[in-house]
Structure formats: structure tokens, C-alpha cells
């Protein structure tokens, strides 16, 4: 089994490593949006007297560029192709294989995320470092926590998208579910603005009741030293486990339904 998962991870990595032009194009766009958001956030902080709800400018810079770098790693805007395979019926071949498709998809996606880390994460972060004054954690341990947090974020992103993909077993047309996920994950992850800007009740709902802050905001907060990093990471791991368990449960029900239809 570990050999199979390793093979799937490398396969995912190599598949995305062949899309060189798309990687270049995506990185370029992340950098442009990084500049754009960075200036906007810095201006908002400046007119609010230097702090944007507790973030100083260096922390904002880190928050913005981490968000742009992690966008392609977490990949929340790109649905997994499982929905399409359910619709066409190809999912049957996935279910025939000796490995649960949940793990096949997870390992492949981890491989993809690994490639994104090397390219679409590092280049925008480097751009942020060169052109802006970024908050860099002093404690070396924080860097390790950030890396773990990114891994957890990638698993949360996968779990959410896989779950959305599974709705195809009932809905066939997942456009609505995909759109709802896309919208909630965009705002809820803190991509457009740091979540501290929102009213307290909404923040509590997002952090406690949804996995969305685990996608980006959690990592940014660990990196800039807001809140207890271990607690934030624990929250991300919790959501990663919950989502994967949910995926497993929903998939079991879905496959039973599939058998009923097929029989």
C-alpha cells in the first residue's frame, strides 16, 4: 500500500509537471494579483492608522503573498474530475480497482499539490520577498508549522472538492454545488480579505463551523504569529480528518446506491 500511494503521488506530480505553459501562466497571474491585493491591503491599513484590524503592514504582505502562493496548492477553484466520471459512468472502473478511489484521488492530488508547492508557491513568495517588506517568523519552528499547515490545507481543499464531486451521484449536474463551494471557500478562506475584518459572530461561525479558514487564513495566521499556532494547526487537522471521514461515508452510501441502480 505505501508503495502504491507513493506511485500515485509521483504520478500526480509528473502529470502536472508536464503542464509547463499553464504553470507559467498561472504563476504570472498569481503575482499580478499579489501586487494588486498587497497595495490595496497596505492602503487600507495606512488609512486605518497603520493597522488593519491588528495586522501591521509586514504581516499583511505575508498574508497576501501566502494566499496567492497557496491558491494553486489548495486548488479550491478547480473541481476534481470525479464528478465528470460519475456522470459518464467511468467511475465504475475506479471502483473496480483494488484501492479505494478516495485514496487514489487523494494521493494524486497530493502529488499535484507538491508540484504546485515547487512552482506556483515559491515564485509568488519570492516576488513578495523582493518587492515588499514581508513579515518573516523569527522562530525556526514556525516555518515547520507553516509547512505542516500547508499540507493540512491541501488535504482540506481536497476533502471539500471530493465531497462536492461525490454529490454527482445524486445530482449528476454539480454546477450548483461547485459554484456554492467556490464562493464560500473564496470568502471563507480569507483570500479576498483577512477574516478579522468580519464581525465577530461571523468569524466564530466560519472558524468553528466551517473548514474554509483552514484553507488559507489558518496558515497565514500561523506565519504572522496571530493566535496559538498549535491550536490553529489542530483545527486544520481536525477538519482534514472530518472531511476525509465524511468523504468515505458519503462514498459508501453512493456506491451502494450505484449497485442498486446497476442491479
Amino acid at each position: 500500500m505505501p508503495r502504491a500511494s507513493w506511485a500515485l503521488i509521483t504520478a500526480g506530480f509528473r502529470r502536472y509537471a508536464t503542464y509547463r505553459q499553464a504553470t507559467f501562466a498561472g504563476t504570472f497571474t498569481n503575482i499580478v494579483f499579489g501586487f494588486l491585493r498587497c497595495y490595496i491591503m497596505l492602503s487600507v491599513a495606512a488609512s486605518a492608522g497603520g493597522l488593519l484590524r491588528g495586522y501591521d503592514s509586514a504581516q499583511l504582505v505575508t498574508y497576501v503573498w501566502l494566499g496567492q502562493g497557496m491558491l494553486a496548492v489548495v486548488n479550491m477553484w478547480v473541481p476534481l474530475d470525479i464528478a465528470e466520471r460519475v456522470r459518464t459512468g467511468d467511475v465504475v472502473t475506479d471502483l473496480f480497482r483494488p484501492i479505494n478511489p478516495l485514496w487514489t484521488y487523494l494521493w494524486t492530488d497530493i502529488g499535484r499539490a507538491g508540484f504546485a508547492m515547487l512552482t506556483r508557491f515559491t515564485v509568488p513568495i519570492a516576488a513578495g520577498l523582493v518587492f515588499f517588506e514581508m513579515h518573516l517568523p523569527r522562530n525556526p519552528l514556525t516555518y515547520a508549522l507553516v509547512v505542516l499547515s500547508i499540507v493540512a490545507a491541501a488535504v482540506v481543499g481536497f476533502g471539500g472538492r471530493y465531497l462536492i464531486g461525490l454529490t454527482a451521484f445524486w445530482l449528476l449536474d454539480t454546477r450548483g454545488a461547485v459554484a456554492a463551494w467556490g464562493m464560500l471557500s473564496t470568502v471563507g478562506s480569507g483570500l479576498y480579505f483577512p477574516l478579522t475584518v468580519l464581525p465577530e459572530w461571523l468569524r466564530v461561525v466560519l472558524w468553528v463551523g466551517t473548514p474554509f479558514p483552514s484553507l488559507l487564513q489558518a496558515t497565514a495566521d500561523i506565519a504572522v504569529g496571530r493566535g496559538d499556532p498549535l491550536l490553529i494547526l489542530a483545527g486544520q487537522v481536525f477538519w482534514a480528518v472530518v472531511l476525509l471521514a465524511l468523504c468515505g461515508a458519503v462514498q459508501r452510501r453512493a456506491t451502494r446506491k450505484l449497485v442498486v441502480q446497476g442491479g
Binding site: 490595496i40 492602503s43 487600507v44 488609512s47 486605518a48 492608522g49 488593519l52 484590524r53 454546477r175 450548483g176 459554484a179 456554492a180 467556490g182 464562493m183 473564496t186 470568502v187 479576498y192 480579505f193 475584518v197 468580519l198
Partner: peptide
């Protein structure tokens, strides 16, 4: 969905506006 998603972009402007009651002066 398409309408709500673009409403989000407009909402973002006003969320940031609300931080200090102004944008860029």
C-alpha cells in the same frame, strides 16, 4: 451563482471600506 459571485467582488470593496470608513482618501 454567477450573479452572487460578482456580488462578492463588490462586497469586498465595502468590507475593506468599512475598516476605516474610506478608501485611498
Amino acid at each position: 451563482a454567477s450573479t452572487l459571485i460578482s456580488a462578492l467582488d463588490i462586497a469586498t470593496v465595502f468590507v475593506l471600506f468599512s475598516v476605516s470608513g474610506g478608501l485611498g482618501g
